[in-house]
Design a protein around this nucleic acid. Structure first.
Lengths: 152, 152
DNA sequence: CCAGAACGTAGGCATATGCCATCATCTTGT
DNA sequence: ACAAGATGATGGCATATGCCTACGTTCTGG
């Protein structure tokens, strides 16, 4: 039990973030398991759902993820018939994504489970805590590390 | 730019955590790139370094990661000669891990870069902010979701 | 001391993610 | 209108992670 508080590792922002992600990911995945979706997939379906037949690039940008990574991640969902892609008529370079009817059904099913996980998590850490955590994480996702440190 | 603040996705603790992890991971990876190590690998080497020839199970527990996942992750490091494993003399079921001399050298090299990334990150978000974020993440990693919700 | 339970790890399979090279498609300057 | 450059997506390769099963070790009851 001392490992958790070992010096050094606990000082690395990135390592701590990854560790928490593994933990929380396992939890959400567990709760979502009955739906057959992983938490990442549920999130992806939802992101597509709230978008207006979003382009892949837009999804990737919103999730701060690599475009090719997104492409890979979408494949199982396409294979399972939850989403489908189609070229943007106005710009055929752009590929848009939308849920299939089955995808919508599956998403609804998964969302119910998601609520359970979300609720359980917030019951434990507190609603406020969770909110401020999300805010902090949102801030990180929006950081611009390329900005010259000594600009101006 | 509106995607970042779209409703829904931003409410999922898990999704936000993953997103921030991707972002920060890319940053740390970029900075560590010259060493040839990924941030995860550097963290792993460090964890092994500060441990006393830790057993795989101990490492996995400390990092809240699946034992088999750890095994997979170690492979490239073994292949590249940074670490080596050996059976615990007292219990041959247990496999312990230690850095090789090259591993130690490589870790030192990577740690210098890590400091740069760490510093840069904390310059941006603030030392206090970073510390409280790590504390929150540590708390999450230590959560016990199995605890009966209505126990007493 | 032996058979079966318990423990620790490895392997196979699958998803998550990223980088880079490539290809297809638009956009633009001339 | 055409060639060069910019933009969006794919495929190949590699690591990160997890689950489940199989296998070797150690421990325990009889």
């Amino acid at each position: 039990m001392s490992q958790t508080t070992l010096p050094g590792l606990a000082l690395c922002n990135n390592a701590m973030l990854r560790r928490a992600t593994r933990k929380l990911g396992q939890f959400y995945d567990d709760v979502l398991a009955p739906s057959g979706l992983k938490a990442t997939q549920q999130g992806l379906l939802y992101q597509i759902h709230i978008g207006n037949e979003p382009a892949m690039g837009a999804i990737a940008a919103a999730l701060v993820m690599d475009l090719s990574a997104l492409g890979h991640t979408l494949k199982p969902l396409i294979r399972d018939g939850y989403i489908e892609t189609f070229a943007d008529p106005a710009d055929r370079r752009v590929k848009r994504v939308r849920l299939t009817p089955q995808g919508r059904t599956k998403l609804e099913e998964a969302l119910k489970l998601w609520h359970v996980a979300q609720q359980r998590f917030e019951d434990i850490v507190g609603k406020e805590q969770a909110a401020s955590l999300r805010a902090a994480l949102d801030e990180i996702a929006a950081l611009d590390f390329d900005a010259p440190p000594a600009a101006t």
